[in-house]
Design a protein around this nucleic acid. Structure first.
Lengths: 240, 240
DNA sequence: CTCGGTTTGTTCCTGCGTTCACAAACTCCT
DNA sequence: AGGAGTTTGTGAACGCAGGAACAAACCGAG
């Protein structure tokens, strides 16, 4: 999922755990809004949709914030996870590419509420320059370097067509952005130390389609070790 | 990532492999458009951003479609992967929830080009009824069951607010939809046999933020085994 | 036909992630 | 104060994923 090769972060929190911390945070927020002040690992795990043993092991990587025989203090645990992820400090985000998806991202309320401020919108299309989206004016992508420097952009969201994604990424990285969220359907290559996460909508659908096919009654295995079943490729495979 | 518990699909293709097949497909399409007819595992792996040994192992799960000493026939391999994923047959998709994100999804060109047809748009807000998005009229979510039956919907995309997501999902499942792509920031519970995949934008950003914090020079470890470093929680932890 | 060069398919191995199971620790009741 | 009941934190076991390395298979040259 990420360019990071090591499976562990410096202090020793496994990647798999890091990926679940936001889940726990969301579950804790929901519990808190319902007035719950203390919860067991069982309750929290069920709210987050994971196994309770896994939850306890994940949390143990952060420290011992629970009380045996009682459970976890919701408010405290929420704070501890927030701090661990680094949400106690706001981070500035620039969105590059304001097609349908880019505009939706710019308007996405879930960012702001979690400490991410969209501070700049950039696009290559002159027709979009000056257009207002989510209270921000779209600026030319030519100003990317200036924007990153002036507005202290920490995270770049790439929502451009696939063709432009690599160049935009290169420029973001050169300007000092070390965290990139990529929505373009392409593989980005970045230097060591830069973190790329990708979200690919059509890939998710294709994975669903795969399982869908397995369920369908019309599905019958077509690949086997018998030559007859190999069909069309037999020519290539067995030709001399 | 998915509700599926077993790591292997019926015929024995590991989940991790399934998740990479669409990547290979995209790389093959790119090669094909460049006029390449044959490619080595090394070349294809580099285009897909993975290790070549892993690629060969992944492909070996589908069958023996390569030729030793030569490589893979691009067109044939492309077809084989398409067939394995089930892209040779189009699938109908319904999008529920037409906020910013839902509209962007309805317009997303990457769906259609990969054999996914968005055939219906549903929302609960009467102000959106009849509005045209991507050549489709938005219909009331009350008609969900009718739409699923009439249009043979195979995949449901949930892009509603978190509060409505579970109810919409329940209705989709009851209507016979067994594949769900969830964009709402909530955990969906579904019966056995239903496949849910989730895409959570703010979680991706939070994971980036975590690594970002580890890079930042102001970062200093605050958790340790020494009581003094535990700070604020000492009260709860050590109190009687 | 044979031999060297190339590339796949597969085997082995290492390491991570997940789950089970239990000891340690805390609360509450008597 | 003591014991029963709960719940956390963790040690151990197991399974899967990823990578290295090699044998099998193919092509082309001589």
């Amino acid at each position: 999922m990420t360019a990071r090769t090591s499976a562990e972060s410096p202090r020793g929190i496994p990647e798999a755990t890091v990926a679940r911390l936001p889940l726990y945070l969301r579950a804790l927020t929901a519990l808190s809004e319902r007035g719950t002040t203390v919860c067991s690992s069982e309750a929290l795990a069920s709210a987050a949709g994971v196994n309770s043993a896994m939850l306890r092991k994940d949390l143990s990587h952060l420290g011992s914030y629970g009380t045996r025989g009682v459970g976890y203090d919701v408010a405290n645990l929420r704070y501890q996870i927030s701090r661990e992820i680094g949400l106690t400090q706001d981070r500035n985000v620039a969105v590059v590419g304001l097609g349908n998806l880019g505009q939706a991202l710019a308007n996405y309320a879930g960012f702001r509420s979690r400490g991410f401020r969209v501070v700049s919108l950039l696009d290559a299309d002159p027709r979009l320059f000056g257009m207002t989206v989510a209270d921000l004016q779209v600026r030319p992508v030519a100003e990317l370097e200036a924007v990153v420097a002036e507005l202290d952009v920490a995270i770049g969201v790439v929502a451009t067509p696939a063709e432009a994604a690599q160049e935009v990424t290169d420029r973001l990285v050169a300007a000092g952005v070390a965290s990139i969220l990529n929505f373009a359907p392409t593989v980005l290559s970045v230097p060591e130390g830069v973190d790329v996460r990708k979200v690919d909508l059509s890939i998710e659908l294709q994975i669903l389609a795969f399982h869908e096919q397995r369920r369908s009654p019309s599905y019958a295995p077509t690949i086997s070790t018998t030559p007859a079943a190999r069909g069309a490729v037999a020519v290539q495979e067995e030709g001399r």
